[in-house]
């Protein structure tokens, strides 16, 4: 079964004093997400990621289009009981403690009273807020609020989770934990749909990604498929300050530090560079593939789109 089916969702905001000027935030979007997938929703700032998520959560109304979750209408309350949502930069009732907030949200989501207490304990433990559960949320730091946000999104054990930039505001340990959490959700058969502009997170987690830019879908597919079109690069570091002419001739990017040289070359030049280093008896320190990242893809794809748009205008 499809977990998420987005059927031509579209949003045009009306801006200006008289709300006359149309501002398209999302062009008609069609997207399908399979059950059990971790799906990344990527795009630069202002691309329309948050708008899409707000539409899906019924917080703003679409200009056209609709969506289906788990085979049902998206507005169906039984569906809403099975979805969790982490908003961007979440903010909560700051006069409540973390425990009280989860209690309240558990009630609203219909978590039975008997299971609630235990479930809340478990969630607080999971998002690392167990020690501060009695502190009012007004005294929470940004990252702590983000953790509360993640906690409340998965509190009612939803089948479908929407995260808007789940890693933002978190320290490296927090990011790691959230990655693990998403992996765990996948193991439990949940579907995770998350937006981000941090590509390494998407690379590490996603089965498939969609890329949007200026409200339009620009790419969709498995990460390997999207990245295979971009050639790989390799970073080579050796000791010394010497630059063999044959390497220089490759026209590679080159950085000379105190006693090391670092160059970035194309994958297929790798052997030639190693041969040259051997000939010159230079000590190789490291050779690392700069993995064709989504970022490269992203930048190239968008640049391409930009230039074609510019030429057609």
């Amino acid at each position: 079964m499809l977990a998420i089916e987005i059927l031509g969702l579209e949003k045009t905001y009306k801006v200006g004093f008289w709300r006359k000027r149309p501002k398209p935030a999302l062009r008609p979007l069609h997207l399908q997400v399979e059950e059990g997938e971790i799906f990344g929703f990527l795009g630069p700032n202002g691309a329309g990621k948050t708008t899409t998520l707000k539409l899906l959560m019924g917080l703003v109304f679409p200009s056209a289009g609709s969506a289906r979750f788990l085979g049902k209408a998206w507005t169906d309350p039984t569906v809403k009981a099975q979805t969790g949502f982490l908003p961007e930069q979440p903010y909560f009732y700051d006069y409540l403690t973390a425990h009280e907030l989860l209690e309240y949200y558990g009630q609203l989501s219909g978590v039975p009273a008997k299971q609630r207490k235990q479930r809340i304990e478990q969630i607080l433990q999971q998002v690392g807020l167990h020690d501060v559960q009695g502190v009012q949320l007004r005294k929470f730091s940004k990252g702590m609020l983000q953790r509360v946000g993640i906690g409340q999104a998965i509190l009612h054990d939803p089948k479908l989770v929407f995260f808007d930039e789940p890693m933002s505001g978190l320290d490296p340990i927090g990011r790691r934990e959230v990655r693990d959490l998403m992996d765990q959700l996948k193991q439990e058969g949940k579907t995770v749909f998350f937006s981000t502009h941090i590509l390494s997170d998407a690379e590490a987690l996603c089965d498939r990604v969609a890329i949007i830019h200026k409200g339009e879908l620009r790419g969709l597919g498995a990460i390997e498929d999207l990245t295979s079109t971009v050639r790989g690069k390799v970073e080579v570091i050796w000791q010394g300050t010497q630059m063999p002419p044959s390497i220089k001739a490759l026209g590679a990017e080159c950085h000379v530090a105190a006693d090391t040289v670092r160059v970035i070359i194309d994958e297929n030049q790798q052997d030639a560079v190693i041969d040259a280093l051997r000939r010159e008896r230079l000590r190789l320190i490291s050779l690392t593939p700069v993995r064709t990242s989504l970022e490269t893809y992203f930048v190239e794809k968008l640049r391409h789109a930009e230039t074609t748009a510019a030429t057609t205008v």
């Binding site: 707000k54 959560m57 019924g58 917080l59 309350p77 039984t78 809403k80 009981a81 979805t83 949502f85 908003p87 930069q89 979440p90 903010y91 909560f92 009732y93 949200y105 609203l108 989501s109 219909g110 946000g149 409340q152 999104a153």
Partner: peptide, 11 residues
């Protein structure tokens, strides 16, 4: 304050 987001996304 956007406190409504996490309320109205519930049933």
């Amino acid at each position: 304050k956007r406190t409504l987001y996490t309320v109205l996304s519930r049933p």
